[in-house]
Structure formats: C-alpha cells, structure tokens
C-alpha cells in the first residue's frame, strides 16, 4: 500500500465492480454517491439508499462512505435539502455552477464539498470572497477530473485554466481542495499515482496533490464522525 491514505470517488453505488476496481488500484476508501436521487419527491423526508449499499460495505476491505449529492435550484432550496440530507450522509456534496448556489454552499458549514463550481462557466466560479468563506467554513472545493477527460480536446485548455485559477486562490486562502473522478464505470478510475502526475499539468505540486487526495477526505470523514456531538462551532459534548 502506498502513502495515499484515502481517496474519494463519486460513482454509481450499485456497481460492485467499481468498488472492487478501486480496491485493486490501492485506494484506501471511496465515497459512494447516488447520482439520481429523487430530491423533488416532497413526500419522502428521508433520502433512500438502496439496500445493497450495506452488502457492498460488508464485502469489501476498503472504507466505504455514504455520500449525498445535492442538486438545488436556488439557495433556499439548497439549505432545505442540506438540512434533510445531513443526517443520512457521511459526505455531503452540493453541485455548483450557479453563482448563488456556489456562494450559499461556501457559506454553509454543513456542506462538505462544493462540486465543480466552474461548471458551465467561463471563469472558475469562485473568487476571493467565496474563497475566504470556504476557508472559514471548511468547505472543500472540488477539482473534477471527469471534466478534464470528457471535454473535447480543443476546449480542454479552458478547464485547465479554471483549475489553475482555483489553485491560485487555494494557495492564498487555504481552503481545502479535493480531487475526485466522478466515475461511472471502471474505465473512469485511475491509480492515485497517475492522478498525482496528471495534476502537474495545471501547476499543482506533488505535496498539494497528495493532501488533496488523502488529507482533505480524511478531515471530512473525521468531522462527520463528531458532527452529531457538536453543539455549535467549537463546543462538543464529551461522554
């Protein structure tokens, strides 16, 4: 096992093959995300995970975490859904792209990850104001490698520019950064060493890439473990 401790992977969770592949590629853990959660169904107060999540968890030797991805129309909608989903999820991710949602997600300490804030935009989707907020509230900003691989080749340079911009803000304001792959099949997964080498093309250093792959996910998990016993920021119930 390499020095990489944890790596998060956002994939279709019913796929046992994906988890097996991640295990083979020496990942220490993955977070399984349901891609098509029916958030609009207002009758359900809970977000249901399919039963075989538990089976997958039992049968694999790596850590499996339960993630929820939130698709919101506006900030109020986002807050409501975050409130609903927080207890169910170990990792909570908000799908960004819209500026208002980006901002609301950066200001909400309950959110763990803001997913692709640059989605469908010309700029990176965050600026120094959002970056400060994200650093205060420990919201990790995601660099999604799926966008790099799946964009057509003559537009790839735009994605890399956006990554560069986020990296620049990260160096200045120190918000957590996370690299994910958003895999849907085993052909989307790459070894951590390959990903670290790849991040060099947008100017990321080896240590930065390592911490984005292992330390940030670990911190997120640690925080989600103690979340139920924390009353307000800085105050925790001790048994």
């Amino acid at each position: 096992m390499g020095r990489i401790k944890l790596f998060f992977d956002f994939n279709v969770k019913e796929d046992v093959l994906l988890v097996k592949e991640a295990e083979r590629l020496e990942y220490a853990g993955v977070a399984l995300f349901e891609h098509q959660i029916n958030h609009n169904n207002s009758n359900n107060n809970k977000i249901y995970f399919q039963a075989d999540f538990e089976t997958i968890k039992k049968n694999s030797s790596i850590h499996i975490y339960r993630g929820v991805e939130i698709l919101a129309k506006n900030p109020e909608d986002m807050k409501r859904k975050v409130q609903k989903a927080r207890k169910e999820a170990e990792v909570l991710m908000v799908r960004g792209g819209d500026l208002k949602i980006n901002r609301a997600a950066c200001e909400d300490p309950r959110v763990d990850i803001i997913s692709h804030p640059y989605h469908g935009r010309r700029d990176s989707g965050i600026n120094h104001v959002f970056a400060k907020k994200a650093a205060e509230n420990n919201v990790a900003v995601e660099l999604n490698l799926k966008y790099l691989f799946k964009t057509r080749s003559h537009l790839r340079y735009k994605i890399l520019t956006q990554f560069r911009e986020i990296l620049k803000l990260h160096r200045k304001f120190n918000f957590p950064l996370i690299i994910t792959s958003s895999s849907k099949s085993i052909y989307d997964l790459h070894t951590p060493q390959d990903i670290i080498a790849l991040t060099r093309c947008f100017g990321m250093k080896k240590e930065e890439a390592k911490s984005a792959l292992s330390e940030t996910p670990q911190n997120i998990i640690e925080r989600s473990k103690i979340r139920s016993s924390v009353l307000i920021g800085g105050v925790k119930i001790v048994d």
């Binding site: 010309r122 790839r156 340079y157 735009k158 890399l160 520019t161 990554f163 947008f202």
Partner: peptide, 20 residues
C-alpha cells in the same frame, strides 16, 4: 485559435496562455 494552440502546445500549454 484554440485549435491551433492545442495542436502546437497541447491542452496543458494552451491553458497557461489564458486565451480569450
């Protein structure tokens, strides 16, 4: 222009130029 930059320097080199 984007295609030419990509062809000459690849996506990595083109991203450095911050073209618009």
């Amino acid at each position: 222009v984007g295609g030419a930059m990509g062809e000459m320097y690849g996506a990595c080199g083109a991203s450095r130029a911050d073209l618009w």
